[in-house]
Design a protein around this nucleic acid. Structure first.
Lengths: 203, 203
DNA sequence: AGGATTAAATTAACAGTGTTAATCTAAAAT
DNA sequence: ATTTTAGATTAACACTGTTAATTTAATCCT
């Protein structure tokens, strides 16, 4: 291995190290207490060093977002292949989406609270390969299956996909970031939400 | 009028002036571009002067929140008295909730994005009178009417109220703050969401 | 009316934030 | 061995919310 690629490899490794430290800081300290300077201190480098590996804070957060989306995508894939009934798959996809949010509040927050610009414009989002995009496509595929097999009534696939996902998102954000409200049991709310929605869109 | 209460009146007026300027700055500049120092510049006072009228930034944002909630509460009251059919009232309450969010993105943002602490703990929220609390109670009243009159099936009122409101909230936040996604028409999504949910919870 | 008291507003400062330009250091290439 | 290049750092800028100390202005009291 030439010294040239050796350096490139080290650089990549260091990038990963920063990313791991960032994720760690994120999970433990939370979204609002995360800062570039704290990250620098954690990895024992000056703050500016980070900028040699990530364009800016958003780029760093984007990288973490993609990791989160990757986890979620894998989960979605598992569901799609292990549930023969499309409606069961959809129900499970929604439930585990919400559980993911409940169990990983900080990861979820970075994913949905970082500047929308990190994924570029509408066109860029749809064209550029990203874990986030793939997740949406896969979730839509599950929804489509329900419609195609007649388990849900005929309607615009994108509209239904979006309605289901925003509803689930709403439950996650409200119960995890508005703790100062006497919410009913999260799991009860999640099941009630999914049951109601799927029942509502059945034939 | 004694000079004592005269001063108190002036103080209250100035408080209002600051609040008005803050709301203005908020609506025009948006949540993330709002700052105490910009507000100070706008009202042509030093930044610290604001702290003589509001404990801190959160207290100021809380005051704006309450204004927003007041508007929404009035709207909800109007609906409750003008729709004889409980289910129509509920449908309209949800639709106008979402429209309110669509049309007032910055006000909505301050209301749902400021530190949860501004409304205190769970117990404090339920005990202390606030526009936000009143809104929840009124919305729940509308939901309760639907169940009591048999327009929706028997179930826990709070659970249903919360499910409906978080779903609507999810649609608002996603479509207004995640613009970098090819959302379907917001109004279509809103109606699809409400139709699906209400259908799902009917007998 | 004039001195004491109180209220209002300000300046200066602290401890943070993200980020850039210029500089120094150490390794690689010629 | 000297030049080139890459890596990391220091210093600085322009912000943020907020507090303590200080000055300015109005009110109270004798």
């Amino acid at each position: 291995m030439g010294a040239r690629e050796k350096r490139a490899k080290y650089k990549e490794e260091f990038r990963r190290e920063i990313l791991d430290a960032a994720r760690d800081l994120f999970i433990n300290e939370g979204y609002e207490r995360f800062s570039m300077r704290k990250l620098a201190e954690k990895i024992e480098y000056s703050p500016t060093t980070i900028y040699l590996y990530f364009k800016d804070k958003d780029a760093l957060l984007f990288a973490i977002c993609e990791e989160v989306a990757e986890q979620f995508l894998a989960n979605l894939n598992h569901i799609k292949t292990h549930y023969s009934d499309p409606l069961d798959a959809l129900r499970q996809a929604m439930i585990s989406f919400m559980e993911f949010g409940f169990n990983n509040p900080n990861q979820y927050k970075v994913f949905f609270f970082t500047s929308p610009e990190v994924y570029g414009s509408q066109e860029e989002f749809m064209e550029k390969e990203s874990m986030a995009r793939s997740s949406y496509f896969l979730f839509r595929e599950i929804v489509r299956n329900c419609i195609a097999t007649g388990r849900l009534r005929e309607m615009d696939t994108d509209v239904l996909t979006q309605v289901l996902s925003v509803a689930a998102h709403g439950l996650i954000v409200m119960t995890t970031y508005r703790k100062n409200f006497p919410w009913a049991d999260r799991s009860v709310l999640a099941h009630t939400l999914v049951d109601g929605l799927l029942r509502g869109y059945q034939k």
